[in-house]
């Protein structure tokens, strides 16, 4: 009961019965996707979905707790590479991919904790944090980019420099290999699970403290909260969610390159989150799916200007819908809506 109450708390979009009916309908449509889409299209949908955990992590970190990070793709890359190395070396056993996944997530948590410890316990503040996260990402890209030589081999796996790491094993449990439709369902269930866990967390006391920290760090500390500890907590959580996306990415494409950790991929999650509405998880999830779909469709059509269009979109949304376009749509007074939108918690910096 308490969990249900938390799921339906006020810190995300949608609380009415009609909302949940619509939500269930969308999930149902996604579950039934193999009935009306080819395996190739389902595989594309998997790609749009697998970016959502990273975006939800950034939403919690930035939208709820006020810490902007350009470094989420670093954890995406760390998990992807770690999985490639571990699973690529454990090809003798069918448990390699599982061990690789756990290893990738734990490495993200460890790196996030060390980085976060120095940032938050060192009381680094304001705009220095996003710059540090970006520097970390670019350092990682530079490091991975120079691993082309044969000496950059871990066990049987080549890091591969800018050519990337190839032949990364797909996910598998026992003898069951997650590919095609199976991988789609795997990515879908993980994404939905991450969404609900995030929603519960942000409606719980932890989420309230996140918002308090975003609104006023000093006030929150002087109400007796160890702000550093909470900041570190959400930072590690976001790192692990970015890692989860990285894992799904390499299990989906069997391939990763340092350019995944570069400047452009680092900026994209910030766009997804800002365009959707950074302090509303559902808005972020929807925007992530749709923007990845648009991006893919544009690139597939041979359009080289996809990044320019994404940038322009960010600019327009920031100018006209500073709280996010999905949030703006959700808060429209639809004619059938009798209730007035409850006093929403606005982000002061918006």
């Amino acid at each position: 009961m308490r969990l249900l109450h938390l799921v339906n708390g006020g810190e995300d979009l949608g609380r009415s019965r009609w909302f949940w009916i619509g939500f269930a309908a969308v999930i149902l449509a996604l579950v039934a996707l193999p009935l009306y889409q080819t395996e190739f299209e389902a595989s594309n949908a998997s790609y749009y979905l697998l970016n959502i955990p990273l975006a939800l992590g950034l939403s919690m970190l930035w939208g709820y707790c006020g810490i902007l990070s350009f470094g989420q793709v670093a954890y995406f890359g760390i998990a992807g590479y770690a999985y490639g190395v571990i699973a690529g070396n454990l090809t003798e056993t069918s448990w390699g991919p599982l061990v690789g996944s756990v290893g990738g997530l734990l490495l993200c948590a460890a790196v996030g904790a060390i980085f976060g410890y120095f940032v938050f316990f060192g009381r680094v503040q304001g705009w220095i944090v996003p710059i540090l996260t970006l520097v970390f990402t670019l350092l990682l890209e530079t490091f991975l980019g120079q691993t082309a030589g044969y000496q950059w081999r871990i066990g049987a796996v080549q890091l591969g420099g800018y050519n990337g790491m190839t032949g990364i094993p797909p996910f598998q449990i026992g003898n069951f290999i997650f590919q095609g439709y199976a991988f789609y369902f795997f990515a879908l269930s993980l994404t939905v699970a991450v969404y609900f866990i995030s929603r519960i967390l942000m409606n719980a006391h932890f989420g309230k403290i996140m918002i308090a920290i975003r609104e006023d760090v000093l006030r929150t500390e002087t109400l007796g909260y160890d702000v550093r500890f909470y900041q570190l907590g959400v930072f590690v959580l976001a790192a692990m969610l970015a890692g989860l996306s990285g894992l799904l990415y390499v299990q989906w494409g069997n391939y990763i390159t340092p350019s995944q950790v570069g400047l452009l991929p680092a900026a994209l999650p910030v766009i997804w989150v800002a365009v959707g509405g950074r302090n509303r998880l559902l808005a972020v999830a929807i925007a992530t799916y749709l923007l990845n779909w648009i991006n893919y469709t544009l690139s597939e059509a041979g359009n080289q200007y996809a990044p320019v269009i994404m940038g322009a979109l960010l600019l327009l949304v920031m100018l006209f819908f500073p709280r996010g376009i999905i949030v703006a749509i959700a808060e429209l007074r639809w004619p059938w809506r009798r209730d007035v939108t409850p006093v929403s918690v606005q982000d002061r910096s918006a």
Partner: peptide, 29 residues
Amino acid sequence: FRRVRLGLGLTFQTNRAYHNLTIAQNLEI
């Protein structure tokens, strides 16, 4: 925050209630 946990409470010269949150949320935090 440790001093606060030991029984100190404080308010500042400028008001630092969470202006964007409801009164209930302010008190709950």
